[in-house]
């Protein structure tokens, strides 16, 4: 079936299968930041935005983004830059595999909550699992990033 949607600000028309996942479609579109992790909607690795809301692309049917706006990290690089620098400085990337999904959810969080507390951040990001870091370095990076945002 034909699908018309907007990917990172560009209008696209693609031929898709009715049961194709958004994850599969986005990787086929060359969006390497979108990675699969768990297949059961539990880990957050595959997080992208549909109409600015973070969703799990592994459980989202591609057909459903008809007429909608999809954003991956490739389309949010400028907004992500500061957070990525903070993460790198803390060593919070480690294997890096879960980072893009985490960054996309964190950016959505900053948009939605403005200046969240540590507790609010942990709740918002609870669906982003990371096995390497134990999360603390991510939380430090988020705190530094939030501090930078406040001083602007």
């Amino acid at each position: 079936m034909k699908l018309n949607f907007e990917l990172n600000g560009r209008k696209l028309e693609r031929e898709i299968a009715p049961d194709e996942t958004l994850l599969h479609l986005l990787r086929a579109c060359g969006m390497h930041s979108v990675r699969g992790g768990c297949d059961t909607s539990n880990c957050g690795v595959c997080t992208v935005w549909v109409d600015d809301r973070p969703v799990l692309s592994c459980g989202y049917l591609a057909a459903r983004v008809e007429g909608r706006r999809v954003t991956t990290l490739e389309g949010a690089r400028a907004e992500a830059g500061e957070l990525m620098n903070c993460l790198a400085a803390e060593g919070a990337d480690q294997c890096g595999y879960c980072s893009p999904g985490f960054i996309m959810c964190a950016l959505a969080m900053f948009r939605e909550l403005g200046d969240p507390s540590d507790e609010e951040m942990r709740r918002y990001l609870a669906g982003n699992l990371c096995r390497c870091t134990g999360y603390e370095s991510q939380m430090r990076a988020l705190a530094k990033c939030a501090e930078g945002r406040r001083s602007k």
Binding site: A88, D93, G96, S99
Partner: peptide
Amino acid sequence: DALAIMGGA
């Protein structure tokens, strides 16, 4: 490799 692995290279 931080920016590459985080950024989706």
